[in-house]
Design a protein around this nucleic acid. Structure first.
Length: 435
RNA sequence: GUGGAUAUAGUUCAAUCGGUAGAGCACCAGAUUGUGGUUCUGGGUGUUGCGGGUUCAAGUCCCGUUAUCCACCCCA
């Protein structure tokens, strides 16, 4: 007994107690239902992959953050740091067994060895949804539409989805003749909201001459209505581009569906990951911009190209479940604790224990979740147990009820008794009260 | 990974100049009702994150370490 091992968990990794886990599962279920309602199908892939498979298309940053080690067979392996790269590998491996366009969702944990912060962990859950095999505005729009539907189904208040387009920005930089520094410029541009225009201009001036730097700033800080901004971007890039045409079509689809209010054209959104080639999205909560994007993605037309010669354009997005939950928690809008058990059968008279279990079976057969209290503690104790688990009903059956083959039902929230009911009547009553 | 702040009971907090840790709520045991919201009695439930050091004496001072929060970086 002398040397107990500390029951500690790793930095950035967490245990989930039932209360939290129940709402996590609820959220996941709501998302799954939403994804399925759009015709998406689930897949799964391994947690561990060959390192070269995962690093094939990443940037230097992912290299640093990835959990990587040698397995027992001396293979160089790594844990997936997102669900998109494994998905690209999956598509390349199974393209002949699938149909296009292929729409899948994938809700699972991923791992990144970066520093932790609120809403930012080393082990976290992503909810990805992607469409592969088509490069159309319809697909771009459908992803936006699913983002909107998902967050709406979850009851996330006051969001705006910021969209932008890598293609337009690339055309713009080409027009300026400075596309070589793309990666560096993207990084700086991405900070606009955080560090302000002056700082951004200062940093850009170190890369390009002053005139070009201020042109970039002009591009990324364009203001006005959606259409105004789009027009400005086109002017700055020397006229309409395929990208801007695409955005215009997607915009019209938003209007046709009456959801255009939620979308903001924000040219400073660029996304750090360099595999994006077209439209990109980020979602912010109006009340909590500091926590970052809770749902981001974009179009990546070459992602599978390192695994396969078959061209597989894709577009998709990812909801950060843990970050979203941290945000909802902070906003106080997370759902109140729910019970999974509908009825607790009180352990009142131990000689009737067999009867209690048969009552529980009857309740379950009627579609109710029921459990028998597993100890002969006092009522007080059994009631506190029910309260801790937020169980709404208790069934009490003592000698008197048993003789008449009846039970007493107690509505634990209202603290109201319904005495001497048959079990069938009790079931009816429970369903009536819980609606 | 770099820099800064923080860490005391289940929880929210307290503990003066260094003197072996207290309070509310919560919780546990018991009494009384066939049934918990009242009442009464009793209980502090703690390795002060962890490990060292200084000291007669450390929650308090020093060093290290781990975790959390914040900023950078990056991102969900």
């Amino acid at each position: 007994m002398a040397n107990l091992i500390q029951p500690k968990v790793l930095k950035g990794f967490r245990d989930f107690l039932p209360e939290t886990e129940i709402s996590r599962k609820d959220i996941q279920q709501t998302l799954e239902e939403t994804f399925k309602s759009f015709g998406m199908v689930p897949i799964d892939t391994p947690v561990l992959e060959y390192t070269d498979v995962l690093l094939g298309k990443g940037s230097g940053e992912t290299d640093k953050q990835i959990y990587r080690f040698n397995d027992h067979g001396k293979r160089d392996v790594a844990m997936r740091f997102d669900l998109t790269v494994p998905f690209a590998r999956f598509m390349a491996a199974h393209i002949n067994e699938l149909y296009l366009p292929f729409k899948r969702y994938h809700i699972s944990k991923v791992w990144r060895g970066e520093n932790t912060q609120r809403g930012r962990y080393r082990e976290f859950t992503q909810c990805d949804f992607d469409i592969v095999g088509v490069d159309t505005p319809e697909a771009d729009f459908e992803i936006l539409s699913i983002m909107h539907a998902s967050l709406k189904a979850l009851g996330v208040p006051d969001i705006h989805i910021h969209i932008s387009h890598r293609g337009i920005f690339n055309a713009f930089l080409d027009h300026l003749g400075i596309s070589d520094d793309l990666a560096e410029i993207l990084r700086i541009v991405d900070k606009l909201a955080k560090i302000g225009e002056d700082k951004v201009l200062e940093m850009l001036t170190e890369l390009a001459d002053g005139d070009k730097a201020s042109r970039i700033l002009e591009y990324i800080s364009a203001e006005g209505s959606f259409d105004d901004i789009l027009g400005k971007l086109e002017n700055l890039s020397g006229g309409p581009t395929p990208g801007s045409e695409r955005i215009r079509i997607v915009r019209q689809m938003m209007i046709d569906c009456g959801i255009e209010e939620l979308f903001v054209l924000n040219p400073s959104i660029t996304r750090g990951l360099d595999y994006y080639t077209g439209i990109v999205y980020e979602t912010f909560l109006d009340a909590l911009p500091a926590i970052g994007s809770v749902c981001s993605g974009g179009r990546y037309n070459n992602l599978a190209s390192i695994y396969s010669k078959t061209e597989m354009p894709g577009v998709g997005s990812s909801i950060g479940l843990d970050r979203l939950m941290a945000a909802l928690d902070e906003l106080g809008t997370s759902s109140s604790k729910k019970s999974l058990t509908d009825v607790l059968i009180m352990n009142m008279d131990r000689s009737l224990k067999g009867h209690y279990f048969s009552l529980a079976t009857k309740l379950r057969e009627a579609g109710l979740n029921a459990e028998v209290f597993l100890d002969n503690k006092k009522f007080k104790n059994q009631f506190s147990f029910a309260e801790r688990k937020a169980i709404p009903f208790a069934v009490i059956c003592g000698e008197d009820e048993f003789k008449e083959n009846r039970v007493t039902l107690k509505d634990l929230n209202a603290r109201q008794n319904f005495e001497m009911l048959t079990i069938e009547e009790a079931i009816e009553k429970i369903k009536e009260i819980s609606g």
